[in-house]
Design a protein around this nucleic acid. Structure first.
Lengths: 189, 189
DNA sequence: CGGGAGTTGTGATATATATCAAAAAATACT
DNA sequence: AGTATTTTTTGATATATATCACAACTCCCG
């Protein structure tokens, strides 16, 4: 567990140094190549993940075409929530968009009887609330705004997304075709 | 706490009879008249609610026009999640569509040190997961389907909604105008 | 029981965005 | 560096749904 990762954990819940050390065995790093799949469609997602370096894409497949739900970058957590919570096959696919370093949190293996369990479960609860508020915010944004406004919103609130992620994927993230996004950007609309 | 309410609680988490009795002081019924507002825009939502009788509507206002997010009926829980979780003013308005009997759960007042706290907090966690999976399911359904398919989905999976809720509101719930819904129903599309 | 508000249906028209097609630009690969 | 692949842009056209206007129906409530 690198210092950077420790401080990300601390930013969610006030862990002591001992508690973080105790977490060590439940956390493992993995390196993903560009376009490598972390969670495939139909697979059961049993972990929560944290990006140390790189960029991941959460999306589902709607007869043939991708629908992007989220992009996760440095310092952010993610999972296939429905699959994780209900222990059912994931509808969501998770893929690295670049070569990425990801930490796998084996949250289910944490011993329930341990004295640190309360701290840990508070952490997990907060994580979930964060994840779900993020998706809810995105959905509301989608429903309240026109395509052009949605693009403006991303530009203003998530500018790193425009710099780093191919516009084709951004377009699907804001629910329009890449052609329409291109026209919005060139001010045709 | 009526037997019906007790059994709804038990369906979420395995409460003992004593635990349910202990909950009593944290739960209060309220009767709402038709169109009465339970949570106004800007108000901080501090409770979780359970419908015993009637029907409630969660919606927000997008310059002048309502956008319906959810309808809650007998046996279902609801809250303004963002407001509750972040203790911030609610963007969502909650209103009774009919005369309704609603139980107010004062979850924040439950004593943290009490021996029943673990059971109670598991219950709350499960409730939240349910609520959030419901909204996520709805959002995904909206993104995957055409207006006609969305109507078919409601007809198949939530038929009571069509029977009980004015079509104007259902239309906004599935993200179309009432005219378009009317045409879908008459098979013009 | 009758009038008025609220709800639903129908028609005509406008418009935003998808779709199809292909060129141009950027990026990755050997 | 030079070719191949991917990404973005531009253009022409189609189409679904919104919008506007108003008629028909439903159902409370006095």
């Amino acid at each position: 567990m690198t210092p950077a990762i420790k401080s990300i954990f601390k930013s969610i819940s006030p862990f002591t140094e001992e508690e973080l050390n105790f977490l060590e065995p439940y956390i493992k790093p993995v390196v993903l190549r560009k376009n490598e799949t972390l969670i495939a469609e139909g697979q059961i997602c049993k972990h929560i993940f944290l990006v140390e370096q790189g960029c991941l894409r959460n999306f589902y497949n709607n007869d043939g075409s991708d629908v992007n739900l989220n992009f996760t970058m440095e310092g952010q957590f993610f999972t296939s929530f429905e699959s994780y919570a209900n222990r059912e096959p994931s509808k969501i696919i998770i893929q690295a968009m670049e070569k990425s370093l990801v930490w796998i949190i084996n949250s289910r293996a944490f011993p329930k009887e341990h004295e640190y369990y309360t701290t840990f479960s508070t952490f997990i609860r907060r994580l979930f609330i964060r994840l779900l508020l993020t998706t809810e915010e995105h959905h509301n944004m989608m429903r309240m705004n026109t395509p052009a406004e949605r693009y403006e919103y991303i530009l203003k609130n998530k500018p790193e997304m425009i710099q780093r992620i191919p516009l084709t994927h951004v377009a699907s993230y804001i629910g329009i075709t890449r052609e329409t996004l291109s026209r919005i950007r060139s001010n045709s609309y």
